[in-house]
Each structure stands twice: as C-alpha cells, then as structure tokens.
C-alpha cells in the first residue's frame, strides 16, 4: 500500500479532522474524491472515444491535482501521464509523439489508472469503514 499512498500527504489530510475519532472532514474529502474520480474516468472514456486529446489532457491534469493532494501517488502518476499524452508529449512530457500513439498510450494509462484507483479505493473504504458507495456514505 505504501507505493499507492504517500503517507505524509495523506496524514496531512487526517490532521485536519477536528475530531480524530469521527474523521468527518477527511472522510468527506475522500468520498468526494471517489465521486470526482469516477466521474472523471467516465469523461475520459468518452473523450477517448471522441479522440479529444485536449479534453483528455485537461481531465488528466484535473484528477492529478486532487489525487496529489490526497497523496494517491500511483493514481496521480497515471493522471500525469494522461495529461502529457493528451498534450501530444511522451510519458514525461518532454518529447512530442504522434496523435495515434497518444491515444494508444492514454488507453493503457487509463486502464492502469483505474486499476490503481480500485486498489486505493478499496483500502480507503476499509480505512474509513465506508463499505460501498451505494449504501452508507451518503451521510456525509
């Protein structure tokens, strides 16, 4: 789990809870992130169908910001890749690549991103005791 979540950054979020027993704030943030991530993934899939690289890059940047804030390192890295590919650049954003390559790479990175997301989602749900988003987490 260490490689998935940067503990220091995540702990900063936990520190913000007024009451460590109740975790009201951090849980709200995390659940908010779940909604945001799933919504963003849907938008990314649509944009991928439409081959809208600009939109993909912007969505990647968007989700990169929030996943970084929570310290979700792997998701953040995959989002950064999507941002770079979407901008027509290679993985690290240094050299240009073709549009065709970009779409192919985004397809791969998106799959990785979603897989990594599933792992952290499961672990975070366990941590906060929010088992399934359709059942309990609405009390936010």
């Amino acid at each position: 789990m260490k490689e998935h979540i940067d503990k220091a950054t995540f702990d900063q979020i936990l520190e913000m809870d007024d009451d460590p027993d109740d975790r009201d704030f951090s849980m709200g943030i995390v659940v908010g992130f779940f909604e945001q991530a799933e919504g963003t993934f849907k938008k990314m899939e649509k944009a991928l169908e439409k081959k809208d690289l600009k939109e993909l890059s912007s969505l990647g940047h968007f989700l990169k910001g929030s996943s970084a804030t929570l310290g979700l390192t792997k998701v953040k890295d995959a989002c950064e890749e999507i941002q770079n590919y979407g901008a027509g650049k290679d993985k690290t954003g240094t050299n240009p690549i073709t549009e065709e390559d970009s779409l192919k790479k985004i397809d791969e990175s998106l799959a990785t991103c979603q897989a990594d997301y599933k792992v952290v989602e499961k672990s975070l749900r366990k941590f906060f005791g929010v088992e399934n988003d359709s059942e309990k987490n609405v009390d936010k």
């Binding site: 979020i13 913000m16 704030f25 943030i29 908010g32 945001q36 968007f62």
Partner: peptide
Amino acid sequence: EDNLVNHMVMLKLLQS
C-alpha cells in the same frame, strides 16, 4: 481553485 478536493483541503487549512 477548480478542483473540489483541493478546494476543500485548502479551505480547511485556511480555517485551521
């Protein structure tokens, strides 16, 4: 800040 998650965190930090 356009990102809800970051927005919330910044807001919380500032309040603190």
